[in-house]
Structure formats: C-alpha cells, structure tokens
Nucleic acid binder design. Structure first.
Lengths: 205, 205
DNA sequence: TAGATTGTTAATCGATTAACAATC
DNA sequence: TAGATTGTTAATCGATTAACAATC
C-alpha cells in the first residue's frame, strides 16, 4: 500500500474483486485476467487493472494474475488478513440471522457478543451466545476492544446506540436501521436498508 | 420526470432523501431546506438541490421545500407511489427475517410469497405465509405478475435461481447471496453482503 | 423590506476509458 | 518467437462544488 490517498470508490470495489477471486480459487482456478475478472463482476478490464495497480504490480504481462497471490494482496490491503471481532446490537430477527450467518468466518470476521435492551431477551441464548444487556454494553465493548459493530435496533433507537458505540471505541458500524447516522469523521458507517435498495430499482421498472 | 437520462448515482440518492423526509414528516416538520436535509443525510446542500432540480422545481426561494410535497414527488419519481409485490427466495434465517420485517409496507413493498427448494421446509408456515416449492416458482411468479425478488439462497444456488427469476419475468433482484450475478441488461440487481460491507470499512481501521 | 433559499451556470475536480509500449 | 496481457498515460467523460441572480 503506498502513500497517496486511494479514493473510497476504489476501496469499495476491492471486496467485490476479493469475493470473486475467492470463488475462483474454490473452483480450482489458478490464474485469471482483468478481462475474466471483469466479466465476472461486471466491471471493465481497464478499471480493474487501474484499481489493482494503485497498490502495486501484482500481475504478469501475458499471463494475468495469480489468483492466490492477488487474494493475499487484497486481504492485506483491506486488512482482512486477520480476524476482526464484531458485536451485534439488537437481538431481533435480523440480529438472530447475523449471529447464525456462516458467511463471516472466511471473510475476516468473528461475532463475539450480542446486546439488546429488552430485559426479556437479555440472558437468552442465540446460537452459542448469551444476549447481554445494552446497559453494560459500553464497558463490555471497551473490555473486548471491539472496533466493529452491526446495528439492528429500531430506527428510533439507532442514533442513541450509535453514540454509545462511538463512545465505546467502535470505529466501523454496519447499520441495518433505516436512518442516516451522525458520527464523527473517524468512524465509518455502511448502510443496509432493504427498502432503500429496492427503491433504487423501482425507478427503472 | 423529464426526458433526459438521469444518472444512476442520482437515482441512488433519492431513496435516502425520501427516507429522511419521511422521518422529518413523522416528527411533525412541515418544511426543510437543502442545507438541513443535507446535514441529515451527509450530502452537500448544493448536490441535493442539483439532484432534486433534475426532476422539476419543487422548492421555493426563501422558504425551502414542503416536506409533504417533496415526499409525494420523490415517491412518484421512484414509482413507490404504489405497492410492489415482492417474493422471497430462500427460507433460511435471512428469508425469515425479511418476511417478518415490518419496514416494507410504508416504503412501497408487500411480500406475497416465499420459496425454498428444501422439501422439509416446503409447506411450513413463516408468519402468514406458507413456504412454496421452488419447483413451481416460475409459473407461480408469472401468475402473480411479480417483478421484484429478494434472493437469500446459498451462493452456490444463486445464479441458477436468478436465471429462473429472470425467466419468470422478474426485473429487479435484491441479492443477499455473496456472489455477483449475471443477468440481462433490462434486469437490475442490488447487492447486500454484510462481509463485503464490513470489508469496505476495515481498510480505514 | 430584508433575509433566506432556490435553481442554475460555470468552474473544478475526479473517475473511467481507450490505447499502447513493455514484457511475460 | 508469437500471442497475450499488464501497467500506465492521455483523453474523455461525468460528477461535484462554488457562486449568484432570481425570487419567495
């Protein structure tokens, strides 16, 4: 990774490349080209070469990219060449689904705790976890040193909980609540709101 | 809505504006400004004015935008001034969570059916729905005239199911499977993959 | 009226694409 | 070697911002 500032939009595409490459590796492929990868993810070959070349020269003229090597490099760049601990806040249906989801462990993430403010849910088991009380969340997150949270509380509670997460030292929030969050500059937020995503498509119907 | 082609990137922001405006309306506000709306969603006032002005003159100098009026206009533009029927494919945890989710009905969507290929799940009830067999899915979707699907099957099955959905006349797919889908030009896909979203943030940690 | 805020233009900034020398 | 494909440059294209006249 070099010194100049890489645009957000490029960083946003790297996980998509990584996902496609890991799929290629799983089906036994050894090398690929910007052309082939581009067809797979729906992005032009030129753009893929340009994106990747921001970080180094990972390909070979004539033969393309070693899939295994490029996976290693992308994982390094994205800092998922390690495991990140993640907490889930909100033990509703979505919290359940995330805790049970099998797709985190080979992408760099481990869920380590789930919180809810509903005393009826606190203490219950979800998969191998015991639902913890949001009242003790801040200290618990600090203690665990967790930097990433997934937020699945109702919209009305989301900003308050986000503030608590920031206070606890969380630096990345995956927000499932259908509301824009206000957080300091050094905290990143990604939004997942199925209705918003659907509304991005109805325009074209 | 006028004749010239509106960029995708603008269409993508409209649902975020709409969501913020609906929230403002709920807390009793009557008017807002590009400045205020921009602070709410984290976008510059100039950009908001520019985006909105692509579709008409919906504001008033000196006073800003009528929230109710702008909501109406955005709903028209996005074609969510009506209800869209939606099917869910895959009756796992995510399928369950979507069927139970309360956040669709006031955003323009109604779930009308859920499908799975697992005979053990077919016939079971989820909320008010009976899980239907994917074997009969194509005809059923045609019969219902559904144009929108949410895809929550395993990655290995996603492309095959997507092809079936396209064959059934579906034109918009919200894909929860962690894989890029290949679909015709006239079919839109939006991707929700929590691991990918998290990996977009770890770079900055 | 005075203050506020839009809609729009022009300028700036940034991203994508096309093309090709380098080289495996 | 001949063919393929990268990394990179320059050109093009598109998006964002700043500024302000118009006007509520």
């Amino acid at each position: 990774m070099n010194a100049r500032k890489i645009p957000d939009i490029i960083i946003g595409r790297l996980p998509v490349y990584l996902r496609a490459l890991q799929h290629m590796a799983e089906i036994g492929l050894k090398t690929t080209s910007s052309q082939e990868l581009g067809e797979n993810v729906g992005i032009s070959a030129a753009q893929i070469r340009k994106d990747i070349s921001q970080f180094g020269e990972f390909g070979k003229q004539g033969t393309g990219y070693s899939i295994e090597y490029l996976i290693d490099k992308l994982r390094e760049i994205l800092k998922v060449d390690r495991y990140w601990d993640v907490v889930v806040v909100g033990a509703g249906d979505m919290g359940h689904a995330l805790v049970n989801y099998q797709g985190f462990s080979d992408r760099g993430f481990h869920i380590v705790a789930i919180f809810d403010n509903d005393k009826a849910k606190v203490g219950q088991n979800i998969s191998k976890f015991n639902v913890e009380d949001t009242d003790t969340m801040i200290d618990r997150i600090k203690e665990l040193g967790v930097k990433i949270a997934m937020l699945t509380v109702p919209a009305a509670a989301a900003q308050v909980v986000a503030d608590q997460l920031v206070q606890a030292g969380v630096r990345a929030i995956l927000n499932y609540a259908p509301i824009s969050l206000n957080v300091p500059n050094n905290v990143k937020v990604q939004y997942i709101d199925p209705s918003t995503h659907l509304q991005r498509m109805t325009y074209y119907l």
